Amino acid sequence: MTMNNTNDLSEKKPFRIFIGYDAREDLAYKVCHHSITKRSSIPVEIIPIVQQDLRKKGLYWRETGQLESTEFSFSRFLTPHLSDYQGWAMFIDCDFLYLADIKELTDLINDEYAIMCVQNDYTPKETSKMDGAVQTVYPRKNWSSMVLYNCGHPKNKTLTPEVVNTQTGAFLHRFQWLEDEDIGSIPFVWNFLEGHNSVVENDPTTQPKAVHYTRGGPWFDACKDCEFADLWLNELEEYNKENKKEGDSAN
């Protein structure tokens, strides 16, 4: 397939990346942010989606439901609105660790789609996550955890604050404002689900480019020994060292 990639990157504008922020996973957000910026060969603009800030701005007002496992369960769908319905932007959960240059991902962008994502076939065995949140099961689970949005696509103008605040979880998380042909596919290694996806020996196409600790990551005590924990802890150590250097130089 020929890629029709005429997004903001061609104009040298920073690629917008919205990361879902949850106060309980502040460290996960910081490490995710660090893992992207240190490897990116293109300019990126990283914006946290903070529910409290969105409420103050009048963009988010829906009541918190019992099945919401994060503070950004629904606010994530404001990504096109927060981008003024222009260009391409990405939303990701904060529990990602990037291991590859984000440019490799943006090179996959195809303007014919309204969104692009990893179309995982994922049914969790666990009934709860490591932080005690309920582990829900539904079609297209985890598809919305990493989405490239063609914010200027006419169908994405459906995602107004009113719709994001009033529509059902099924409508939003299953992308029911779109037809199947509006959804482009990205290789699973960009949303490599820890504990679900596997690396095949001698097959580089199965090596994760972004690990998603969807069951809970090493920032939770119960998950210190999860798969790829060492990679996340190494990134945390590097993040802490760089922060310490910046702090020392400022004094």
Rank of each mutant, 00 (worst) to 15 (best):
T205Y: 05
P124Q: 11
M1T: 14
T2G: 15
T64Y: 02
L159P: 08
V211S: 06
Q86C: 13
L108Q: 13
K13C: 05
M90Q: 07
E237A: 14
G65E: 15
L9F: 14
Y21Q: 09
N120H: 10
I19T: 06
Q51N: 11
I109K: 13
R55L: 10
L105F: 04
L231A: 15
K245N: 10
E235N: 07
L105M: 04
Y85G: 02
A229I: 07
N4K: 15
Y239P: 00
G216D: 00
L178D: 07
D180T: 09
Y138T: 02
E179S: 13
V164T: 12
E63D: 14
K155Y: 10
Q119S: 03
K103C: 08
V163Y: 10
K245T: 11
D131V: 05
Q207W: 12
W219M: 00
Y122T: 03
E181M: 14
S10T: 14
D203A: 05
E112I: 12
M116C: 09
C94E: 11
I47N: 00
V31S: 00
W190T: 05
G217R: 08
C223I: 01
I46T: 04
I186E: 10
E11W: 15
T79I: 10
L172H: 03
P154E: 12
I183V: 14
E246D: 15
V50C: 07
H81F: 11
K38P: 01
M90A: 13
L193K: 07
T158E: 03
R62D: 15
G169V: 01
C151W: 08
S198E: 08
S128C: 00
D131G: 03
K38C: 05
E45P: 00
S10R: 13
E201I: 13
N251F: 03
T168A: 15
K155P: 03
